[in-house]
Design a binder for these strands. Structure first.
Lengths: 219, 219
DNA sequence: AAAATATTTGACCATTTGGTCAGGTTATAT
DNA sequence: ATATAACCTGACCAAATGGTCAAATATTTT
């Protein structure tokens, strides 16, 4: 109808094509992240994602073509946040600072983007069919530098000899991501109540302290 | 054919009905555990499970009726091993012993039954729709006694004050289960090679040491 | 040995699924 | 103003899926 068009124009709320695409892609990505987190790639349906996004199913296909492609886009978008958190590790020379801020950043990510963490978890549990390349290139590289840092700290006697540095890294990853991936279990064992923000801050500090002590540092 | 029957009888390799059921149920459970581990409940198909078990699909339905029921049976069977490992925690009064053997038992379980761990992980990540009851009754109860033990150790100054005992428990769970749930990632970061038995024993000891130090105990 | 019971399995079915497409609407360039 | 390009979506389809069933085979009981 021309009426509608004129009305919209008059109100100045016309969305440009560019904005429309941007907005819808974001809406779909957010919806897909939630659905994939809960059901994994194979277990999620495009209909579920469409319903979550409050858009017709055809619209999902219009913007992302296939479910697999949408899934890859979700993984990619999570990777961005993930790498940002990873950066904090190498910003500090002192193990106490590096560990404190890295563990803190990972905990924050678990709090702010739990669905993303779950999608990753699902992907790795399934044998990482879509992330193989990222894991063995970008992640491997980052881990190698991390391992070097940790080994240097050991040599300089700044931390205890932890054996294989990977073991420490895995402990940090696993523990911090536990609060996202297993949030439901955490809630049940917290007497059925979600962790409040201040409770979460407490846990974060406790995790940091556990990690610091685990390498022989006194928090 | 009667020939077959006679032959089989003569060789004494006739399977009794009871054995047949036992054997097939086990075969199916093992196959289902692998498939559910990789694809979750919704993502797994009865055909996949049938192929993995090398049985016709109808056979799966004959023994377990529905996919959901089979899934529940898999979870139940995992719970048995899980609770056995949990028992080790309360067998020792001294935190050093209790933690050492519990972490060791959990690591062993990750090594011997990685698929089971993955099925559980998937279930919790999905919001534990089938395990809600087990979590809030059996698991909650066990966790409560664990928390009491840990708090007592803190009061007796046997370990450092860790704040909320749950945080320590989660660290142990997450770290040990990481070697099962994320085994693919662990492999890639181990230069694409599976951990050998002796490598795994090393990691196990390193995890134990990390945990002991994290509560202020000198390994 | 025959009746009864349990196992096995291919054929079948209703429903769900990822994906297509034509025809419509809306924004933008000329 | 009109043409063009982008957005939107209901209707549709082939393939896959969980599950059923009847008929065949195997074991156990009588």
């Amino acid at each position: 109808m021309d009426n509608k068009k004129v009305l919209v124009r008059a109100r100045g709320i016309t969305r440009s094509k560019e904005r429309i695409r941007e907005e819808n892609e974001l809406i779909i990505l957010i919806a897909a992240e939630k659905v994939f987190a809960k059901h994994g790639l194979k277990g999620s349906t495009t209909k579920q994602i469409a319903d979550m996004a409050k858009l017709p199913k055809s619209n999902i296909h219009y913007y992302f073509h296939t479910k697999l492609n949408l899934y890859r886009c979700v993984l990619e978008s999570i990777l961005v946040d993930w790498m940002r958190a990873a950066d904090t590790f190498n910003k500090f020379d002192e193990p106490r600072e590096a560990l404190k801020y890295y563990v803190g950043a990972k905990m924050n990510l678990s709090r702010t983007r739990p669905f993303g963490s779950k999608v990753w978890a699902n992907e790795i549990i399934s044998g990482a069919p879509e992330m193989e390349e990222v894991l063995s290139s970008r992640l491997k590289q980052w881990v190698d530098t991390c391992v070097s840092s940790i080994n240097r700290w050991v040599e300089l006697k700044k931390i205890v000899n932890v054996g294989d540095a990977h073991t420490l890294l895995y402990m940090i990853w696993a523990t911090t991501q536990h609060y996202a991936d297993f949030d439901y279990q955490v809630m049940i064992l917290n007497n059925g109540k979600e962790l409040t923000d201040s409770e979460f801050e407490e846990k974060k500090q406790q995790v940091i302290d556990l990690v610091l002590r685990s390498v022989g540092l006194n928090p």
